[in-house]
Design a protein around this nucleic acid. Structure first.
Length: 867
RNA sequence: GCCCGCUUGGCGAAACUGGUAAACGCAACGGACUUAAAAUCCGUUGGCCGAUCGGCCUUGCUGGUUCAAAUCCAGCAGCGGGCACCA
């Protein structure tokens, strides 16, 4: 059918048509094929909030560009999607709207699935996975049991944020300025027995593995390395004076400063602190006081150092007769190292501050190299600035005269020899607490039996399903309060027992969903053949906010699964791309209230005003789109007005994908205009005489130049897309379409050159604006098969070779002219050509040429001096 | 406090390994078409000076290396991100 020439592209009809064709042809469904190289591209799966936002559009469009590009390159592409469906918002919705979390989640998924479809993404919907489905979480319950059997899952007491009004545990994000987000009650710290995964067992491996991730952003690797936080040092034991059984074990990175020790301090939750409090009522009060401190960052920042001097003293590990005071201090954290420190005021600023507060004497044991110890000591004491650098040891018995690096090793050796300590590598990384006292999560499949203790649910009883009939009130844990669900008989003794009512952290589901996509309907959780074929993910794309938690948990989880025999890989994601945020300016009217972009319009004078009354509006800086800033642009509305291709094109234009992007109305208009320009280029092909393919050598000069430019564009766009530089790829394509618009002549082969160039543009645009490309491919170019299944173009490399180059000519380093020269010309020819440039001659006339620098194919620099 | 980034026209940006700074786009301005508007098309657009040809300056700031620096080095400033009583 001939295309009717119109000035406007009917995106509604075109997009709907090709979407339907792709879907019915199932051309995006992946099938394992060991004869073809695979490519696994994955965007971080969405939480089903109910609507897709611009961040999603950016994320999935980028992924789709990669998927379509790699598919065209001949890879067997896996590009799946699913839903990260457990989590707190569903419970909030249940509370606010009296709708069951499952129902709320389901209807959100239905709505979002439709919105994703409208974007024309080349997703394999046959592999859709929903994490709140028992078919999904039954497998992670099995994994949990395997972890438990291997000692990778365990229980221990841990501090949680406790809301005394809601009688519930709060996540850190739910604690705002030390208060519960809903109740406003002061949040307390409570010790609760919780489930943990032993992620610290993999600290070294997770750190070393970062070295192999050369297709990850450096920034993310640094963040993970810092998070894991490896420190080398020693543990040392200080015996408690007068109590033969008790000792205080500390960790230090500076064991060489032990002779400068002035005190020891314990965390309030240290077992010895608790033990001492039993016979010391003042200490008990102090410990209670410490528990009341909030956990938010703001609170931590303003928290004063609080400490308590106990009645006991501890003995120095190197000098048995030397006794040091023992403090309990709130700045010592229980879950790092041993929960105890020794204080060395002269060489640690925080210890110095502590010493000042408690009038503890300062003993200098390290002086900077080539410095007088007496003068230095005096200066340090008066300035009250600790010296934390390297230097020479003094007043330190067997360490005297050593440099601090050597002394560190000597001190450790001595600790080990005397049995008072040992070398130790400490990580900042903590074990992953996976317990949540929440309803909408995966139930932890264990049973608590008064006789048998913790009993795993037997495999045949999986999944442990969430009850449907829960009452979500906002108080306590709904599973705990459910009348019958938790009551079961013990699988071992058959006696009365209770289910675990904690559910798993939602990061648990996201730690293995990418494995499930490989065989989403398999009876086993992981199908070994499919996982071996598809994994690892070749290109993972998502927001930088997951740089540490999700990406680190997943890396740990895959290793834990490996050790349980599920798979053999180590790193789940060999390529990672972190996209920037989508931002928008904020609008504020004079009363200080924020206004939504749809309530604001540009007046005739060019200033922004409020829509109903024309009241002036101030434009604030561009910030990440969010409800609270009222700067969200509605995705559905944009797609409805401009079409998916325009939205995709805009979001990929201009800004490099890893940087933040400003959403502007002008920008989306510009994308829409460009789509129409390409459309018109397509319609122009229809008016041409039937096109006959001509060999390049028969083309006239101008058609030949266009064809050459098309080949060059193929080469550069391919290179750009390999590196996800979509903005520059688009700039190249635009340059080519600009040339097409200007191209008008009747030289030999003009029609062929135009047709070929149009075909090139269409093929290069296919990953970016797939509907438009498919339409032009079939309707304007006359192809009868799907472009979505057609190979990527390859440039004719013989046409990429330039015969001439523009030589820049500088005089004394300043550009004075250019000249066309044959490519590869020798230096003598280049120098001659350079000297002949008229604009150059005016600058060298009457001057002496001292030196000539010739860089073939690039530049000639003439150094002249007057006279 | 510690650790990372980043800084180029009015704006988003480009520039391979040090070799013609500002490609591509947005906005703006001028023009064509139109009764008019929109759409479209054609121009101009880093700054300063100069009638034109042209000249001088210009990649956060100050220095350095080099025939040549947005790019490399040192110091400083500003912005952003991560971690944070981590011993």
């Amino acid at each position: 059918m001939l295309l009717v020439i119109r000035t406007h592209y009917n995106f509604r009809a075109v997009e709907a048509r090709w979407r339907a064709t792709w879907e019915s042809s199932r051309c995006f469904c992946a099938v394992e094929d060991i004869d073809r190289p695979k490519y696994y591209v994955l965007e971080m799966f969405p939480y089903p909030s109910g609507r897709i936002h611009m961040g999603h559009v950016r994320n999935y469009t980028l992924g789709d560009v990669v998927a379509r590009f790699r598919r065209a390159q001949g890879f067997n592409v896996l590009h799946p999607i699913g839903w990260d469906a457990f989590g707190l918002p569903a419970e909030n919705a249940a509370l606010e709207r009296k709708i069951a979390p499952a129902q709320w989640t389901d209807s959100n998924i239905t709505a979002m699935r439709e919105q994703f479809r409208l974007m024309g993404l080349s997703l394999d919907w046959s592999r859709e996975v929903t994490t709140c489905s028992p078919d999904y979480y039954r497998h992670e319950q099995k994994m949990f049991l395997d972890f438990l059997a291997r000692g990778l899952a365990y229980r221990k007491e841990s501090l949680v944020n406790w809301d005394p009004i809601e009688q519930t545990v709060l996540a850190n994000e739910q604690v705002i300025d030390g208060l519960g987000w809903r109740s406003g009650a002061t949040v307390e710290k409570r010790l609760l027995t919780q489930w943990f995964l032993r992620s610290t067992a993999y600290a070294e491996e997770l750190l070393a593995g970062l070295e192999t991730l050369d297709r990850w952003p450096e920034k993310i690797r640094v963040m993970q390395a810092n998070w894991i936080g490896r420190s080398e040092g020693a543990r040392a034991r200080f015996a408690v004076a007068g109590r033969t059984d008790d000792s205080v074990e500390i960790f230090t990175t500076r064991p060489e400063t032990l002779f400068g020790a002035a005190f020891c301090a314990l965390a309030p939750h240290h077992p010895l602190s608790m033990a001492l409090a039993e016979t010391d009522p003042d200490l008990a009060v102090f410990l209670q006081d410490c528990n009341r401190t909030g956990t938010s960052e703001a609170t931590l920042e303003t928290t004063q150092t609080k400490s308590y001097r106990t009645h006991v003293t501890v003995r120095h590990p190197f000098v048995d007769t030397w006794e040091l005071p023992l403090y309990i201090a709130n700045f010592v954290v229980m879950d790092y190292g041993t929960g105890a420190v020794f204080g060395c005021p002269a060489h640690d600023q925080r210890d110095m501050n502590f010493a000042i507060m408690h009038s503890i004497p300062v003993k200098v044991v390290v002086v900077p190299f080539d410095t007088d110890p007496v003068i230095f000591t005096a200066t340090l004491e008066s300035s009250r600035r600790a010296f934390e650098g390297e230097g020479v040891l003094i007043h330190s018995d067997f360490l005297n005269g050593l440099d601090s690096v050597t002394a560190r090793q000597t001190a450790i050796t001595q600790l080990e020899r005397t049995g008072h300590g040992c070398r130790h590598v400490q990580y900042r990384l903590r074990d992953w607490g996976v317990s949540r006292q929440r309803y909408w999560g995966c139930p932890i499949p264990v049973i608590h039996c008064p006789k048998c203790g913790i009993v795993p649910v037997s495999e045949s009883d999986l999944p442990v399903q969430l009850p449907q009939d829960v009452d979500i009130t906002g108080y306590g844990n709904p599973l705990e309060r459910h009348p019958t669900w938790k009551n079961v008989s013990c699988p071992l003794c058959g006696g009365v027992a209770q289910r675990e009512t904690d559910t798993l952290d939602t990061f648990f589901e996201s730690s293995w969903y990418f494995l499930r996509y490989c065989a989403p309907h398999a009876a086993k959780g992981l199908d070994c053949t499919a996982v071996t074929y598809w994994m690892p993910v070749d290109q993972y794309i998502g927001g930088v906010e997951h740089a540490v938690l999700h990406l680190l948990y997943a890396r740990f989880f895959v290793r834990a699964l490996r050790d349980c025999g599920y798979l053999t890989i180590e790193e789940p994601f060999t390529g990672l791309f972190t996209q920037g945020m989508v931002c928008h300016v904020t609008y504020k009217c004079q009363d200080g209230n924020l206004l939504h972009p749809k309530d604001v319009i540009r007046s005739r004078d060019g200033v922004m005003v409020r829509i109903p009354d024309g009241a002036p509006v101030t434009v604030g800086r561009s910030e990440k789109m969010s409800k609270s800033r009222k700067n969200i642009v509605d995705t559905a509305h944009i797609i409805e007005t401009y079409g998916a291709d325009s939205a995709r094109l805009f979001i990929l234009s201009d800004s490099p994908p890893d940087r933040d992007l400003d959403w502007t109305d002008a920008g989306i208009d510009g994308a829409w205009r460009y789509i129409n320009r390409v459309w018109r280029l397509g319609t122009r092909a229809l008016t041409m005489q039937p096109v006959e393919r001509l060999p390049y050598t028969m083309l006239g000069p101008s058609p030949a130049a266009l064809v050459r430019q098309a080949h060059r564009t193929i080469a550069t766009v391919t290179e750009d897309l390999e590196k996800l530089r979509v903005n520059t790829a688009l700039a190249r394509i635009r340059t080519l379409t600009n040339a097409m618009e200007k191209f008008a002549d009747d030289q030999v082969g003009a029609n062929w050159a135009y047709y070929f160039t149009l075909e090139t543009v269409v093929r290069l645009l296919a990953p970016i604006t797939p509907h438009l490309a498919e339409e032009l491919w079939q309707e304007a170019l006359g192809h009868t098969h799907l472009l979505a299944q057609f190979p990527w173009p390859t440039p004719d490399i013989t046409l990429l070779v330039e015969t001439t180059v523009v030589l820049a000519v500088q005089v004394n380093g300043k550009l004075r002219g250019t000249v066309d020269v044959p490519k590869g010309a020798d230096t003598v020819t280049l120098e001659k050509a350079a000297l002949a440039v008229p604009t150059v001659q005016t600058f060298i006339a009457g001057k002496r040429i001292r030196k000539v620098i010739v860089v073939p194919n690039r530049i000639v620099n003439l150094l002249v001096s007057s006279s």
